[in-house]
């Protein structure tokens, strides 16, 4: 299915947010996910379904003042 991941249209077979994190080899400790504008609690990633058309934002800390 197709989702929007950080503004890019991508195809994925991941069925949950946890599977998406795994598919892209992201480090769960440092990232935060928003799904359709809603903060996705880390503790619920494994049970949060990913749906076609979802807008997913993955963010992390970077240097800043």
């Amino acid at each position: 299915m197709n989702i929007s991941l950080n503004g890019k249209s991508v195809d994925t077979t991941a069925g949950t947010l946890a599977e998406l994190v795994e598919a892209y080899h992201l480090s769960p400790e440092t990232i935060v996910i928003e799904q359709n504008g809603n903060l996705a609690k880390k503790t619920a990633w494994a049970t949060t379904p990913l749906n076609a058309g979802d807008q997913i934002e993955v963010v992390a800390f970077v240097g800043g003042g």
Binding site: L5, K8, Y24, V58, V59, G65
Partner: peptide, 19 residues
Amino acid sequence: VTVALRRIDIEKNEDNIVS
């Protein structure tokens, strides 16, 4: 120390500043 929050580059698996 201050840090900022930004979209990560999904393609690049960079180590995070926090480490």
